[in-house]
Simulated assay, not measured.
Amino acid sequence: MIDRFWAKFGKPSSDSVHTLTKDNMPKHVAIIMDGNGRWAKSRGLPRIAGHHTGMKVVKQITMAADRLGIQYLTLYAFSTENWKRPKAEVDFLMRLPQEFLSIELEELIANNVQVRMMGYRDALPSHTIRALEEAIARTADNTGLILNFALNYGSRTEMTDAVKRIAEAVRDGELKPEDIEESTIAERLFTNGLPDPDLLIRTSGELRLSNFMLWQLAYSEMWFTDVYWPEFSESHFHEAIAEYQRRARRYGGL
């Protein structure tokens, strides 16, 4: 699949994939962490084994992003559509934030990482919310990398809710239709206050956005790899950054 993609768009030469420059580092990287279940299946393991291994990769890539000076890292951890999966798998996924943060929170704090979450909290189990709220509270004053988990997140619902709030503001006389601008919508999204991602990475060979940050990714560079998330390494991350740095971002201009 990826070979077909590169055949159409061109593949970078291998001799420069890890040459990085500090002056062209993306500020915000978003990642669709895909392929945990398929990685496990290819090894004769249960799907949850892939999710557990993938959790360990989260720490590795977070620390790699921090070392590179990336300011924001948004990870697609659980979508609003993922509730369709078997209950046992969903229950396991809902326990991963608690396990991850119980192990890694102190190191995140020591590295000045600030934890955030975007998504719909109401449907999440109480133990998941408690773990996240503790991490968010304890890292609130940190000034380094912002680690933003997209959990129970769906972009179409996010945008629909933003439109509803704008309609309510117009109905209540707080906003005139002629005053609605792009910023009017952006300010009502979960990412209000964050810059749009400069780079989107998706693992596992899939070439789609899967309802992730559809508004925010309008001008993001995209990088796809066949590598499953549990196998994604710092070297792969550097490869994605190097490809980003080779591209010219013109935002519709020349």
Rank of each mutant, 00 (worst) to 15 (best):
R250Q: 09
L199K: 08
S235F: 01
R171L: 14
V58C: 01
V170C: 09
G144W: 11
A77Q: 05
K164S: 09
D122R: 14
G144R: 07
S220Y: 05
E107M: 13
M25N: 08
V227W: 11
D15T: 03
S102H: 13
A169D: 07
L93E: 04
D226S: 13
P125M: 12
Q60I: 05
A169C: 03
M118V: 15
H51W: 08
E178W: 13
D141G: 02
Q114S: 07
L20Y: 15
I48R: 09
W6H: 08
A77C: 14
R165K: 12
P195V: 04
R250S: 13
D34C: 03
G193P: 00
K22E: 14
L194A: 08
A169L: 06
R250A: 12
L217P: 07
H236D: 15
D91H: 04
E99V: 15
F237T: 05
M25T: 12
R246E: 07
A131T: 14
D66R: 11
T184V: 03
L189G: 03
S155V: 02
T139C: 04
D226F: 10
I146P: 00
M118N: 14
A218T: 15
P195R: 10
R85Y: 07
T160V: 10
I103Y: 13
E174M: 08
G144S: 08
A150W: 03
P97M: 13
Y72K: 00
E99Y: 06
H51T: 08
D179T: 09
Y76C: 09
P46T: 14
P46K: 04
D3T: 06
F149P: 08
H28V: 15
A242S: 11
E234M: 10
T191N: 02
F212I: 10
L101G: 06
Y219C: 10
R67P: 03
D172V: 00
Y120W: 01
L199Y: 12
I180M: 04
Y72T: 07
A49Y: 02
F92S: 02
W229M: 06
R121S: 13
E158W: 14
F92I: 01
K84H: 05
M222G: 08
R202N: 09
Y76F: 07
T160G: 11
N142M: 10
T80P: 13
D161G: 08
F5Y: 11
W223Y: 15
G10P: 01
D15Q: 02
D179V: 05
S14H: 00
L124R: 09
K22S: 08
H18L: 12
F5H: 10
L96C: 10
F9E: 12
R249C: 06
T139I: 09
A65K: 13
D196I: 13
L189S: 03
K84L: 09
R249D: 00
R247Y: 09
L199D: 03
M117E: 15
G154E: 13
G35L: 06
E178V: 13
F78E: 07
A49D: 03
N82K: 15
T143G: 11
S155A: 02
L96R: 02
W215P: 04
E133T: 13
D196Y: 03
W83D: 10
A64I: 02
A77T: 06
A49H: 05
Q114C: 10
L194P: 00
S42C: 01
A64Y: 12
R165P: 02
E231D: 15
P12Y: 06
N112R: 05
